[in-house]
Every structure is written in structure tokens, then in C-alpha cells.
Nucleic acid binder design. Sequence first.
DNA 1: CCATTAATAAAACGAACGTTCAATTAATTC
DNA 2: GAATTAATTGAACGTTCGTTTTATTAATGG
Lengths: 215, 215
Amino acid sequence: MARTTGSDGERTEAAVREAAVSLIARLGYEAMSMRQLAAEVGVQAAALYRYFPTKEDLLFTLMREHMEGLLNSWERARPATTDPVARLDAYVRNHIAFHIERRHATHVSNMELRSLSHDRLTQILKLRTTYEKELRTILRDGADAGLFSIDDTGLTAMALIQMMTGVIVWFRPGERLSIAEVTTTYLSMTMRLVGARIDTHGIAPPRGSAPLISP
Amino acid sequence: MARTTGSDGERTEAAVREAAVSLIARLGYEAMSMRQLAAEVGVQAAALYRYFPTKEDLLFTLMREHMEGLLNSWERARPATTDPVARLDAYVRNHIAFHIERRHATHVSNMELRSLSHDRLTQILKLRTTYEKELRTILRDGADAGLFSIDDTGLTAMALIQMMTGVIVWFRPGERLSIAEVTTTYLSMTMRLVGARIDTHGIAPPRGSAPLISP
DNA sequence: CCATTAATAAAACGAACGTTCAATTAATTC
DNA sequence: GAATTAATTGAACGTTCGTTTTATTAATGG
């Protein structure tokens, strides 16, 4: 047998990407074989090489598109206002929504960096840094405006991103908490963590203490 | 050649463990070959099987001892007091110190879980859950005593652990920040995140706002 | 309907993998 | 100093890996 009835390059490539994200997330890049991936798609291993010249090319493509998707998502979600609190709010909401929606791809992008060549690793890290810089800018603007209390902008940004991205480790849709509840709680923790002074998010002030409003 | 002069089982096994942690952290478990590991130790691959029956046994041993080390470390660091703030302080300090000191082993224990068999995965996760439960208890005690303001104890514990463990991703000894500075900042962020009411840690209150003292 | 192109199968390649086995030498014991 | 045990080598096993090559069939365009 050779070309099969109903075969379609575009559909096959999409199926390969989808299956690859799922398999790599579950087994790891090194542990997934091209034959396994092909079987998941329902083709022979050789057919994969029509779409991706090497296994690493496949991984890199998945990662790059994931990072670009994250940046595009933030581009669309970024509010017009200059208010740091509103911008931080939008950043957190977008980050959590995106990462919950694309749990598997995030897993791949975060865990398989060491399987990339030096050059490609640099490209992915550059995209990542661009994204993280957006958060650092928001934090610095907020600190400068006296709206946030932050010891170290860079460290706080890393801590926040790690905290937020960690949601994909334990969150499972349809379990105890809804996406909305999780987002609300993470927003609340974020605002407290950065010492946000003005409560525009319905976050209850600590019981028994004065609301966190500047004098 | 066979047995080499000065060869010593104990020393070889220790060298294997050390090299394995380092190699697996750098390359990943699947990507590291037994021949590579043996070369790092300065021995033939077959010699490794005197100490670990299989590659997975080696991984499991490293992980189990790392998790037991973490639990023992907390056992020794746990304060006698019942005060949730002091206990949380001790938990954060111990967690960060331990994870910075054992960056590579932590990396292995967190990233290579999927390479374990079902039974062994369960054993490691059990140890991990035991450790995380300690934090949840502290948070719940603090919330019950009115010292912390926490939406969801379980979610907050996960967020804190992810935030703190994330330190191993970016922290490099001898760079911009010292361990003491990092610890102080993480403590400050933690206390704010849980809405700790009483400032017993020399954490400066937010500029321009009243100190966080219960009325 | 014929020529061309797109999509795949089938088989094979050499290399590398985890692991085993037998032989060999160093250290230890009596 | 002979017998025993500990530690290791070197070679080999069967398997699987990523990838390439060649052939074959389905879809497409004139």
C-alpha cells in the first residue's frame, strides 16, 4: 500500500502536531518514539518526515508556536490603560486562562527545553524573556507609582510566573474548583503578594484589619 | 584489565549517585545513557550494575533519598512552638535553603516522575504529599487563629510551594542576590500572600500605609 | 484519460540503547 | 601464602531508535 484514500496533508500535519503535544507531555520528548507518534496518528513513521525533517524540528515547531501564541494572546488581552493594577489584573487573567487551556503544550515548552540545540534554545528563551519582561514592566510601573510594594522587581516577577504557571500541575478541569474560582484566588494572591494598595477586584481585606487603602 | 588498584565499592557508588544527579539534571533521565554515566565516573557501564540493578532503580533511589532528605530536614527545622507565623517562617526558610543547596536533585525529583513505574511513582508522591500536608496544616491553623487570610488552603499551599521551588530555576549562587537576600524576599512575599497580620520578621510595611497590625 | 503531483507504505540502515556474561585482577581473610 | 571475596573489564546480546530510500497508490489538472 502507499497513498491511502482520503489522505490529506493538512489534516495529517495537524493530527501529528496534536498527537505530538499530547504524547510528549505524557511520556517526555526523549521517551516518545517517532513510531509511537506515527501509530497515534494512524500512519507509518516515514510519513512523519514529510512534515517535519527531524524529531527536533517537530519539538521546536511546537515550542515556538506555543510561545508565539502566548505573546499574541497577551497582545490581544493587554488593556489600553496605563494603570498598573488593571494591567497586572489583565496579565494574570490572560496567563492563567492561556495556561489552563493549553496545559499540555505548556508542559512541553517548560520541560523539554534541554532537548533543543543551542541556537533554538536561545530563540525560545528570547520569546520567553520578552513575555516575562512585560510583567516586570507592570510591576516596576506600579512600584514607581506607589501602588505596589515590591522588594525586587525581577525576583517578584519570577515568583509570580512560577506560582501562576504551577496551576497546570494540579488543576484538572471539572474537579473541585472552576477556572473562574481559580482565577479569582490567584488574582487575590497576586495582588496581596505585590502589596497592591487599591482594592479594585472585590478582594476582601483581611478579617479584623483595616482595608489596604493609602492614607 | 579487571579490578583496578584502589577500587572501592562505597566510593564508586557515591560517585555514581553524584554523577547521576548531575547528568540527569542536565540531560534528562531518558537522554542520559548508562555508558555516559559510567564514563563520567571513570568506569565501564557494566560496573554500574553492581550497585543498581537497573537504570530505573538508580533513578528511584535518587528520588526517594531526596524526598526523605527533605522530610528529615523539615523534621529537624520544625519549631516547637504552635504559633503558625513562626512555623510558616521556619517552613519557608527550610524549603528555600534545602532547594538551593540541592538544586540538581530537586530538578530530578520534580522532572523525571514520569519515568517511574506506577508503584514507585506512588511511593514518591506519597512522600511529597506528606511534605505538602505540613504546609497545609500550618496555613489552616493560621487561618483558624485569624492570623492568616486565605481563600483556599490547598490552593494556597500549592501556589506557595511552586513559587518557592521555582527559585531553583533562576537562582545561581554568587550572582546578583545572596541566599540570605533571596530568603528574606521570599519570606516577605509569603507573609503578604497569606495575609499574615503580625509582622514579626522585620518586613517593612508598604510605604505610605499603616503597618499590618490587627486593631 | 493521461500526466503530474501529493501522500503514503514497506523495508532497510547503521548507531545506540539497557543489560548480561565470562574472565580477570585487587583486596581481604585465615 | 593460599583461598576467598570484591570490583571491574571487555565483549556480546537482542532491541529499539531516528532516519533514508524506493516503490506504489490516490488525487489533481489539462
